[in-house]
Computed example of a mutant assay.
Amino acid sequence: MGFLDMLTGTRRPEAGIAPRSAEELRAALLGLNGPDVPYVIGDGAAHGADLVAQWRIAEPAWQTFFIGSQLTHAIRIRMRLAEDVPEVRAVEESWEVTRVGNPPRLRTSAEYTRGAGRTVSRRYTLQRGESGRLEATESFSFDSAQLTDPLRNTTLEAGWTWRGVIFGRL
């Protein structure tokens, strides 16, 4: 793996894995959708891509989860399936998110970044342990890898390269 690959998060499948067709990969990526995951993957035509994966921050059923996570950034990953190579070119985009109103709602700002890094949010609870000392226990954890990892792993298992794009177009 070269320096540029490390910078962009590019990963290649293991040697010997025959690449599946673009249609099979698309179906596998869409198959990651489900009611119990905090993201949705769908058609990306409106965003200049083949597929788009994004957090469900606008859905009422997931509002409590994202507010509870103290999430500060919304993430969207636009993907282009380049069958001739074969690779998935992925652009990660991020917006700042703030909580407004009572009860709180999430609102995205106009601030935008591309090729953003990983977003991690953790909450700890302090309490006295049996010894009487203060102990910190993790009470909540949220990581943007919950979105990126399944997309990348599904791509690699299908024999395709996952190529992060920072500069240029998909």
Rank of each mutant, 00 (worst) to 15 (best):
T98L: 13
E23L: 14
T148Q: 08
R118W: 00
T98N: 11
I67R: 10
R123M: 14
V88W: 01
E23T: 12
V91T: 14
E93L: 15
G129K: 10
D149C: 03
D36E: 15
I75Y: 05
T148G: 06
D149Y: 01
L151G: 04
G164A: 11
S21L: 02
D84E: 15
V52W: 03
A49L: 10
R89P: 01
A58L: 08
R133F: 12
S141I: 04
A110C: 13
W95M: 11
A22H: 08
G101S: 04
L4K: 13
L151Q: 08
V120H: 03
P13K: 02
T98S: 12
H47R: 12
L7W: 03
R99V: 10
T10M: 01
P150W: 02
I67G: 02
P35E: 15
G132E: 04
N33F: 00
P19T: 05
A145W: 00
G101R: 00
L30H: 00
L7P: 03
G164D: 04
H47L: 09
E96H: 14
G101T: 10
L71C: 11
H73V: 14
L29R: 02
T108D: 05
L106N: 13
P19D: 10
P104D: 06
S94Q: 14
A22G: 14
I17A: 07
Y112E: 08
Y124G: 06
S144T: 03
G68Y: 05
I77F: 02
E92H: 07
G115A: 07
T64R: 12
S94F: 09
P104N: 09
T108P: 12
L30N: 01
T8R: 13
S141L: 11
R123C: 13
R99H: 11
E135L: 13
A74Y: 10
S131T: 15
L29Y: 01
V85S: 12
T119I: 09
S94H: 09
Q146G: 02
V52I: 14
W162D: 05
R80Q: 07
G132N: 08
A145P: 03
R78K: 09
S94C: 04
P19C: 09
P86M: 11
R128T: 14
E14F: 06
W95S: 06
G34L: 04
R12Q: 10
A145H: 05
V100H: 11
L25S: 06
Q146P: 00
R80D: 10
E83L: 11
E14D: 14
R122Y: 05
A145K: 09
R152D: 00
V120K: 00
G159H: 04
R20T: 15
R169M: 05
T155E: 07
R20E: 08
L151R: 07
G42L: 06
A74L: 09
S121L: 07
G48W: 09
P150N: 01
L81F: 05
R163I: 01
A58S: 08
G16S: 10
S131W: 04
L147T: 00
T161R: 06
L156A: 05
I17V: 15
L126T: 13
I17G: 00
